[in-house]
Every structure is written in C-alpha cells, then in structure tokens.
Design a protein around this nucleic acid. Structure first.
Length: 663
RNA sequence: GCCACCUUAGCUCAGCGGUAGAGCAACGGUUUCGUAAACCGUAGGUCUGGGGUUCAAGUCCCCAAGGUGGCUCCA
C-alpha cells in the first residue's frame, strides 16, 4: 500500500498548486486540498472557475451561512446544505420563529464579517462513535440522524472553519475551499419551506437559498441574468402584451385574450397541418363523462384526487333516494362519487371508446387519433404557476393504436414530426431520455423487455442519441421524453411518447389480424408540444414576446406622422388588410416617437411610417422590430414582404428524413 | 396540501395607527409634430373579502380567497 498525503502536498510537489487551484480530479472523484490521497495518484487540478470548483465555493459558503445563522439564532439546528444549479441552500430547524428578509440581510452581513478574517477549512476524520457523541452533545438531532445513515465502513469526516476558539464544525464529506478567503461574492436570495428529507410527512424546515461566485463581477453578471429572466417571465409578458389573464372566479384556469388566442390558434393550426402530412385523424370528444368510463380506465382508482366532478339535480336526486333507502344521509359521499360526472383529465379513455365502438381490422392500423380537447385537472394549490401549470388546458394530444411490430416505425415517424416542429420554433437543442420500468408497475418483465426494446429501436431507427432514465417510466409502460433548452438555457420537457398496453387491456380492445383472429393492439400516447398552455409559456419566454411573423397577432402597425397623412395611412392599412396582412393603424395625436415606442413595447414586428413624403411618393417607411430601419418601400413590396415572411412553416419538410443525433 | 411572503386606481408602485398618493394608461382640450414618452386639465378607490383590537385600522391580530417563492406532487 502506497503512502498517503494531503492533496495539497501532492500538488505542491508536482508544481501544480496555485492560488486558483482549490481541488483536483483524482480518479474521477473531486477531492479538495485537505483530503489525503495516494502519493502516486494522478491529480488533475480544478480551479475556482471550473464548474466543479464553483460548486465547492458554494458548498463552503453554505457552511459559513450555517455558522452565521447559528451565531445569530442560537438553538437553530442544522441539517443539510448542498450546492445546487445556481447557488446553494441550507435547511434549518429554527425553534423561535421564521427567517425574514431582514434576517437574510443580517445573516449576509454576519457572513461577511466571518469571511473578513480568513480562516482555513480543516478536515478531520473521526469514528462513528466520536461523531455521534459530539453531535448528540450539541443537540444536533438531524445531524445524528444523518451520521446514523452513513453506511458502515465509510469514512466520516468533519469540516471546520473559523477563528481559533470559535470554530464551526459540520459532519460533511466535502469538498471545501482551502480557506474562507475564497468566498468573495455571496448573496442570499430567498427563504422557503422544505420538508426534512423531502418527505411531506416529515417536519417542515426552513431553507435559505443563496448564491456565490469566485468574483464580484461573476456574481453581478449572474444577478443581471436573473433580472433578464424576470423581464421575460411569461406572466409579465402575458399582461404587457395583452395575451392572457387570470381571475379568481376560475383559479389557475387561463383566459386567453384576443391576441393570445391568435397565437394559440396559430400553433394549433400548424400542428394540424403536420397531422395532414403525418397521417393523423382528428376527433372531437365530450368533456364530461359518466364515472363508469374512468372506473374502467382506472383513473378513478388512481387519479380521483386530481379530477373535477360535476352533478346535475337529477344525480343529486338519485343520491338522495339511495340515502333514503339506507335510512339516512350516510353514504352520500359514495353516492355522489358513483353518480357525479367527471371532467376528463386525459383524452386516452375517450379514444379507447371510439376504437372499441366497432370491429377493427389490421388494415386500419396504425390508427393515429388526435384531439385538442380541453382537459381539467385539479392541481394542488401550491403547484400552479402562470400558464406553465394550470388546471384547465389542452394538449396537442394523439393516440396511436397499432401492433407491437409497428411501434418502432411509429416512434421514428413521430420523432421526425417532433424535430420538424422544434426546428420551426427555433429550439436548437433537444435531449432525449428513455424512461424505463419503475419499481411500482403492472405487467410482466417480459412485456417490459419488449416495450423498452421497441422504444429503443424506434429511437435508433431515427438515429437519435438518448439517455436512459431508469425507473422513471409510467406504471403501465416506458416512455420517451424530449427536453428542450430555451433561449435562457433552461430545460423543459415538452414532447413525450409513451407505450401503453394497459388501456387496450382494460377496454378489451381488439382488431382482426391477417390471420382472421382477434389481437390486442398497443396504444402509444404522444404529444409534441405537450400542454399547449405550458408550451405557450415556454415559447413566450423563449422568444421574449418577439413572435415570428406567422405567429404574431399583429404583423404590422401603420404609424401616421401627423393628421395630414391620416387619409393615406388609412388607405394603406385597408390595402394591406385586404391583401391578408394582420395590420393595425395608430392614428392618434401622439408624436411619431411615442407611436414607435408603443409599438416596440408591444413587440410589433413591422412599423410602417407614413408622413407627407410617403403620401406623395406612394410609399411607406419600413422599420423592422428585428432588423431596424429598412427605408422607403412601395406598398406592393411591403405587402409581398409581409405575406412571404408571414407564412407558417411548411409542414412535412422533414418527412422521411432521419432526425439528427443530439449531443 | 405544507412553510414563508404578497394583495392599495386599468398597470407599476409609495404610504406602515391620525382626513387615501404618484407615474403611466383612460377621458377632455391644446399641439399636427419624422423613428423609443408633447403640454394642460378631468375623472378614477368599500386599500382582496369577512371578523376582531383601538377614541381612531391599507397600517396591528384572526379567518377566508387569490397570487408569489420553495417543498411535496406531476398518468
């Protein structure tokens, strides 16, 4: 066995140590300078600007924050405090109240004071017994629980920092920065509740979120990006651009205003164009159903908490009658549950009803049935979020009934369509995940093997690189998820295609095969945009309200310079409208500068300025939202420009072309 | 659902025990103006709703609704 020495010494020997280096990659593991490693180990230095280095800074900052919190609020117990995507958090159990924004400011100041006199982080290895005794004595019951959960045989390390005599210690596997002097730019952002160990049966802890960077400049840059994201927030843009609204009379159910409705319908129209090319049949189905349907589909058993129920006076009477029979009101709840109609939360049962309504032949398969029906799901109060998570929405939903042999082709064709849509909507990067069998599931292992293989084959057929997401599948079958990155590099799951042998079984669906015998079809659930409401939110933030011309509710706005050119402005507006351009006119008494400002705030794609000069020459002064001033153009040329640029993407341009592999 | 916070004019926000405010928008008037905000005036409010404390409540307390940030959930 080779000798061991702290990584710091190893790096120094090799001349790899500098002020910028705070850790190293040793055999794929991130090891800080405090930790002993084999003397002959290969170590690749990690600097403060490396993403892994950044995580170390943040994690160490979390320790200093916990230190500050316990100084300011004695009796507060610590739990865990990891680095996360853009910062860190630490969960506390505070006995005497909650953290306020004022507290955050105090904590931040206390942290700065602690950092002002730099002290080294120190690492110490202790036995399980020592650790337990220590934290029990400190009354840190959560830490004791954590120590107990550390697997037997694993090293238990303590990290401490702080001036001699007032050090702060935490059981922690690291890694950490060499000294607190590396913590230069810290900002506490907000407080939130969080369950201990993420389980809602456990007590609620108080989580403080913060972020940290190697330099003040980097922190400021980050805060600027946060600010930018806030300015693009779809809820803010929705209000500013008159796209949609909410009202307490229908909580978490959006009202789309005329401009938003245009965009929504244009998206649906585009998907419909694709359906023609890709061989889908669209249907229109009821929104409300007898509970019998959802009993059969299993939704009442598994999904009742999320379902809206409806009743009529007749149904109430039936409930009363039954209660009378039993001699009282007992059972009214069951009665209501048995009789009241259900607002559908999903389209699949409706489509099973259609498929099962008559005998089907193998010649009809695959049958792709699309539906834009409005769905209602009761989402718990705390989870709704603007348009991104609502209780009333529609999906670009379709179900494909087919034989299992047809699954790979269906997947591959679906992927062509999906990539076509994402490209048209300028989502550059797509990550694909294949979610496989979860622990709780129905069906045999052989069935799962077949289903997962069929999906993987489809992906390969489409030439797609994908990752597995083990255990993330639905209880009835595996699924493929498509995640896109938006303009602000946030990831959203939009499309999905899921394999479902369960519903055909429950609805006893069958088709007559070539052999004249009955066969059970499988069903694929699929959506490209997913919830249209959520997609609307994602896309609105992606484009920052700058809709491309084909999606823009208004394509051009005519701005008159003064009253003198009003008549010509009207004439041009009428001509454009007749040619099929969505045009508005601003003939108000405002000055041109104000009109341009208003049009820009509304993200109008084209501004057509009309003054005496244009009236005389029979032209318009064209100013583009995206390209700036384009100069004078004839009305005919502008019309041509707007109509051409305003065409919706041509459907089917990718049909039959394999999708590119994504990285 | 849980924890915290928020809700004042159409919008954005100020006021934090002592007679409800500003800017923008709206409306009326003046101005007719050339590429991101003309000027003057008018109107607009059960301060989310309901209880309470107080001589006095947007302001303090309780309850409810809606929203926000997290957590949990997301067939």
């Amino acid at each position: 066995m080779s000798a061991r020495l702290p990584l710091r010494d190893l790096l120094r020997e090799k001349g790899l140590l500098s002020r910028e280096v705070i850790a190293a990659d040793v055999g794929g593991r991130v090891v800080d300078l405090h930790t002993p490693v084999d003397a002959d180990a290969t170590a690749t230095p990690i600097t403060v600007t490396d993403p892994r280095g950044l995580a170390i800074i943040r994690h160490s900052t979390a320790h200093v924050m916990a230190d500050a919190v316990q100084r300011l609020f004695p009796g507060t117990k610590v739990t865990i405090g990891p680095a996360i995507e853009d910062g860190f958090y630490y969960d506390f159990d505070r006995v005497d109240g909650n953290f306020t924004d004022d507290d955050l400011a105090k904590i931040e100041k206390a942290m700065r004071d602690l950092i002002k006199n730099p002290s080294p982080f120190k690492r110490e290895v202790v036995t399980r017994e020592q650790a337990l005794e220590m934290f029990e004595k400190m009354g840190e019951s959560f830490k004791v629980e954590i120590i107990r959960a550390i697997p037997e045989g694993e090293e238990i390390s303590l990290y401490s920092h702080g001036a001699e005599g007032s050090t702060w210690v935490d059981v922690c596997e690291g890694p950490h920065v060499p000294t607190t002097s590396y913590l230069k730019a810290v900002k506490l952002t907000h407080v939130a509740g969080a369950y201990w160990r993420g389980d809602e049966r456990n007590p609620m802890l108080q989580r403080i979120y913060g972020t940290a960077f190697p330099t003040k400049e980097a922190l400021e840059e980050h805060l600027r990006l946060v600010e930018e994201a806030r300015a693009r927030d779809h809820r803010k843009l929705g209000k500013e651009l008159d796209l949609f609204m909410f009202d307490a009379v229908a909580p978490a159910m959006p009202f789309f205003l005329p401009r938003g409705t245009f965009v929504y319908n244009a998206l649906v129209g585009y998907v419909r164009d694709l359906y023609r090319v890709y061989g889908y049949d669209e249907v229109i189905t009821p929104l409300a159903y007898s509970p019998e349907l959802f009993k059969k589909s299993g939704h009442l058993e598994n999904y009742a908490d999320n379902m809206y129920r409806l009743w009529t006076e007749d149904e109430w009477d039936k409930v009363d009658e039954e209660a009378d029979h039993r001699g009282g009101v007992t059972g009214a709840h069951e009665g209501l549950a048995a009789h009241s109609f259900c607002l559908k939360p999903m389209n699949c049962p409706s489509h099973c009803v259609i498929f099962g309504s008559r005998r089907r032949s193998y010649r009809e398969l695959p049958w792709r049935v699309a539906d834009f029906a409005r769905l209602h799901r009761y989402e718990r109060g705390g989870v709704v979020h603007g348009l991104a998570r609502v209780r009333s929405f529609a999906q670009d939903d379709a179900h494909i009934f087919c034989s299992i042999d047809q699954v790979p082709d269906e997947i591959s064709s679906f992927i062509s369509m999906l990539y076509e849509v994402y490209q048209s909507l300028s989502f550059v990067r797509v990550d694909v995940k294949l979610a496989t069998r979860p622990a709780q599931r129905i069906g045999t292992d052989e069935e799962w093997d077949r289903a997962e293989k069929a999906l993987a084959e489809g992906l390969e057929k489409a030439g797609l690189a994908f990752e597995y997401a083990p255990g993330e599948g639905a209880f009835y079958g595996p699924k493929v998820e498509f995640h896109v990155l938006d303009a602000l590099k946030r990831s959203w799951q939009l499309g999905t295609i899921q394999y479902d042998p369960n519903l055909p079984e429950r609805f006893d669906l069958s088709y007559i095969g070539e052999d004249g015998k009955e066969h059970r079809p499988v069903m694929l659930h699929r959506a490209v945009l997913g919830s249209l409401e959520r997609f609307f939110a994602v896309y609105l933030e992606h484009c920052g309200g700058n809709f491309p011309l084909w999606l823009s509710p208004t394509q051009a706005v005519v701005l008159s310079v003064s009253e003198k050119s009003e008549d010509y402005a009207r004439k041009v507006t009428d001509e454009l409208r007749e040619a099929g351009v969505r045009v508005e006119a601003d003939l108000s008494a405002d000055k041109l500068g104000a009109k341009i400002r208003n049009a820009r705030l509304m993200r109008q794609p084209y501004m057509l300025v009309i003054g005496a000069k244009e009236a005389e020459d029979g032209t318009v002064g064209v100013r583009s939202r995206d390209k700036g001033e384009l100069g004078a153009m004839s009305v005919a040329d502008v019309t041509k420009l707007l109509l051409e640029e305003g065409r919706s993407p041509k459907a089917g341009h990718r049909k039959g072309v394999a999708a590119p592999a994504t990285s």
